[in-house]
Design a protein around this nucleic acid. Structure first.
Lengths: 194, 194
DNA sequence: CGCTACATGTAAGGTGTTACATGATTCC
DNA sequence: GGAATCATGTAACACCTTACATGTAGCG
């Protein structure tokens, strides 16, 4: 039944959701998902196009030919919005986490203190860069009139990103400090209890 | 060459790393990864056993038969430790995030405010439960003498979990508050600018 | 002696990315 | 007209989970 590949239900949610905010091409869809949802969601071409094809076949999105370009704008149908609401109402499946930085720090004894420090510093730098991006997103949400209705909800996710990034920065500073003291108390012979 | 299935390099890292802390059976390996690394890493049976087989074939772990039980204890060889250090030194590939809660909140306009509130509350509850687990892990790390050398590094990851969980709780409270005010300012006709 | 936990593995299927192939449009 | 970007799609492969199959050890 599926032409070549079946996209997962989760992809359908992301695609329908994005189109519910603004109709767009498959190409733009991927860019939006990367740039806007990028901090907590990702989809690749290989998922998006099959998903669009399936959704169209099921009558959940419709293809609007554009006069000028050869490209097609996809928009959700009424059924598509209904389906989106169903999908959103399903309990989110907790995705199994895979944090490469934490894995490396966990075995930091083998990796070495210096490399651990580098990892932590890089993590902090990334978090600081994210904080800037979130600030930007906040401003865009405030100004863009098309997003007026969705903005209060999108802001929740931006806020989560900010909290997470600030936590990462605070953790990194703690971690760097604790690595320094650990090093200075481990190497000497001193082994005082406090 | 690979008998049935090739495990990913990341799995090799986790398996070798866990065995570097304490040799154990494949079964125990899975339990340790679930219980100890569970907050930021996951492996399933289908990954662990093939990985062990490959690592054994490459001479990176050795199988020690136990007298009493029919089970085998796996321990890393010297080459295995070398390989582990190589693997740990590789830059962590940023895994594409897939946060189902954030995806739902992002499209919260379609999901509805009440369901959003539920999601946020559940997230907060989970974070609070995690905080308790982290406190427990901290105590275990302090008491278990076998972990003395690894504990300073493992503590870094526990600390990261705590920072993250506290951030999640703070965010959830913010988010619930902002949903309440949004609801009361959206529904009435008033549309004052400040 | 039957139940539960321990233990090892395989097979099938679902999931997701990358690389490739192809062409149109726009801008210089 | 050539380069960059927009645009659509496929195929191959890497990855990972689940369910199944099988058997042992310990305990009440």
């Amino acid at each position: 039944m599926a032409a070549t590949q079946r996209a997962a239900a989760q992809t359908h949610t992301a695609v329908l959701g994005a189109l519910s905010i603004a109709p767009m091409t498959g190409y733009a869809l991927r860019e939006q998902i990367r740039d806007t949802l990028g901090h907590f969601w990702s989809e690749s071409f290989g998922q998006i196009y099959p998903a669009l094809a399936e959704l169209e076949q099921q009558g959940l999105v419709e293809r609007r030919e554009t006069g000028t370009r050869r490209s097609a704008i996809f928009a959700p149908t009424a059924d598509g919005i209904t389906r989106l609401r169903e999908l959103l109402a399903e309990p989110p499946r907790p995705s199994s986490p895979r944090n490469g930085v934490m894995l490396r720090l966990f075995f930091g004894r083998q990796l070495g203190v210096d490399a651990c420090r580098d990892l932590i510093t890089q993590t902090r730098d990334r978090a600081e860069a994210q904080l800037v991006e979130f600030e930007l997103a906040r401003r865009e949400l405030a100004t863009d009139d098309d997003l007026r209705a969705d903005a209060p909800f999108i802001l929740l996710t931006v806020s989560a990103g900010e909290h997470g990034a600030r936590a990462a920065i605070a953790w990194a500073n703690d971690a760097l400090a604790s690595l320094s003291t650990a090093e200075s108390t481990t190497s000497p012979l001193s082994k005082e209890h406090t």
